[in-house]
Amino acid sequence: MATETDRRSGASTAVSFPDVSGGQLLVHGGLVLSIFLMGLPLLLALVMSTQTTTEVYQVTNLQIGSDGLSNYETALSTYNLGQYMVNSFVMAAVIVVGKVALSLLAALALVYYEFPYERAVFVFVLLTLLLPVPVRIVPLFQLMADLGWANTLLAITGPYIASATAVFLFRQHFRTIPSSLVENARLDGVGPLTFLVRVLIPMSRGMIAGVAVITFVYAWNQYLWPLIVISDQSKQVVQVGIRFLQGASQSGLTQWGLIMAGAVIALLPPLAVLIALHRPLLETFSLQQK
């Protein structure tokens, strides 16, 4: 798929469209309009996030507000969003690193090891797709309490660091690598872990980046589980943190400018990751489809 888009990407930087037919003009118009509509709420949120509460309450005021970036400062410091962002980053980083590492090891075993019940183990891993958090939420919460993990980083990362999808994707990718490469390594007595680190990982950079983006976006998006298992506000993640902002009011008026600033802040990290790594992400998606 990526190659399909790459095929035409060379022309995408062209400023003028010399040979544009009437049909193509319509297509361009349709695309610009669709993308504008999809982005419009975000643009409006950006504008409003600079306005004072008074300006926000003048509903149709679309000027850059007089508050500048002060809503952002207030949200980050007074309303603790800075702390929530750090918490989210730590959570997402632990989940990404943990999931990639565990899944690489599991895929290494599934593809390169001969062992009994291999097929059953793979199916056992895949079947966890049937068990999203809501299916096990009450006992999982009790388990965290029993383990003494409530209100800790462990509670919001531990259940997420193993994944059927990541194991599946790495397994698919490893299977496309010619077996003669590992046989060559074996003739030299190169062990499986050395082979993983020196050969498989360098050869899977794109796939690892793709899985990392998917995992980061997924982890950053977590809301329900942190809401339940983290009751100590200072340990909360940013998605739930936005909820706390809703209570922010000034002389009886909800500070929507501040809330929009918070929403923009909570969106930026995954958006940046997506833009920076969209290529490996698209390639990974195309493998998932097969």
């Binding site: 888009t5 193509q24 695309l31 669709s34 809301y223 958006l271 990751v273 997506l274």
Partner: peptide, 22 residues
């Protein structure tokens, strides 16, 4: 679209990164 597909594509898929709470 014949020209600029990859640019449009990135501009169109950004909601993938949009957290539901946001």
């Amino acid at each position: 679209v014949e020209v600029g597909e990859s640019t449009y594509l990135v501009a169109a898929i950004w909601p993938y990164a949009l957290p539901t709470a946001v």
